[in-house]
Design a protein around this nucleic acid. Structure first.
Lengths: 199, 199
DNA sequence: GTCTATAAGCCGATAGAC
DNA sequence: GTCTATCGGCTTATAGAC
């Protein structure tokens, strides 16, 4: 909130955030974080009790900015809800073309901490994705689209799937395919199929 | 191919597979693998040049069995292509309810190795997912469904998304939601929408 | 709040005997 | 092919001065 030149704590989180995202939390040492932040390790441990606390702070710092980014991408696209959602995926694909892109920090951290379900970072990651799903649901309900609860969950699945596939194959077109699937699902929900198309 | 009591190499891969999947590759030491396999570390390094080689062997050993599992789940479900695909996701959700379930080993390994795109394990993981996508495509084309290339890619996205979401939230119902989305997408592709439903 | 210095142990990988 | 023993380096975290 305050606009200080940047507190020591903020500089630590900024340094950790860059390193954790670029290399993965398990491959970054506390020494590396301290060096990147321009402080000693003793100072680092003064501000954060443990590496696990720092990991939690890293994800906490990315929660709101990431959500705002998705919302800006959605709002910036012309058309109805289906078009706007597809546009959001198109912007995501564009962002994934940046050389430093390395997937979703929340999902990658969850993958690394899969054997520690109670880890604070897992809860933050789960909360972040829940917020995305909830936001999408309010969007669908505001647009008068039925089945917003199921639909928003399906959009989230396409989003996370596109993060995983784009990272594994280093191919952002998976995100565009996810956008097309999202578009088709929203269109189907917007105009329920007549019975002639039933099974 | 041979049905020996189990060669040393096979026992090593079996031990590594259990440990890597349960704890994540970065959290498992070569000491732990050797101990689990009942050999010394020197013997382990006689059979595998490095840990990276062992990681590749781990994923290679899971490639075919995993694909066969998906195909068996698909075949075991009654109905048409859409129902069979949804049934496959339902079986996946059931498997995810096992206490030892920890997501997709290929995706979790890719997340850990995100900063090493050229790692052999990344190529094996990408190949595995490509095979799944290709298999789905042949299924759709054999059933006479149009757009099999795009559709199979969208099913893969739902699959990977459900792995990620189910792991993060520890909630297998995300896989059932993915199955419903897959069902809807396949039904739409099977019976193209008449123009009254166009935008 | 930040520093220098170090504890105590684990890491991947190797030497050399048999 | 398997063993005992160990290297050199890196890991998280802490002690005590200022």
């Amino acid at each position: 909130m305050t606009s200080q030149p940047a507190s020591t704590r903020e500089r630590i989180v900024a340094a950790a955030s860059k390193l954790f995202y670029a290399e993965g939390i398990g491959r970054v040492s506390m020494d590396a974080v301290a060096e990147k932040a321009g402080i000693t390790k003793r100072t680092l441990y003064y501000h954060f009790r443990s590496k696990d606390d720092l990991i939690a702070a890293y994800l906490n710092g990315r929660d709101q900015p990431n959500l705002l980014l998705f919302q800006r991408w959605f709002d910036a696209t012309d058309g109805g809800t289906a078009e706007k959602t597809r546009g959001m995926f198109a912007s995501l694909a564009q962002s994934a073309r940046h050389p430093k892109w390395k997937g979703c920090g929340f999902l990658r951290t969850a993958a690394e901490l899969a054997s520690m379900p109670g880890h604070p970072a897992m809860k933050i990651g789960a909360g972040h994705k829940k917020k995305f799903e909830q936001w999408m649901r309010t969007v669908f309900e505001a647009a008068g689209i039925e089945g917003g609860a199921l639909l928003s969950r399906q959009i989230l699945l396409l989003l996370d799937g596109s993060f995983a596939a784009a990272l594994l194959h280093r191919d952002p077109t998976y995100m565009e395919a996810a956008g097309e699937a999202a578009y088709a699902l929203i269109m189907s929900a917007s105009s329920p199929l007549p019975q002639i198309l039933g099974k």
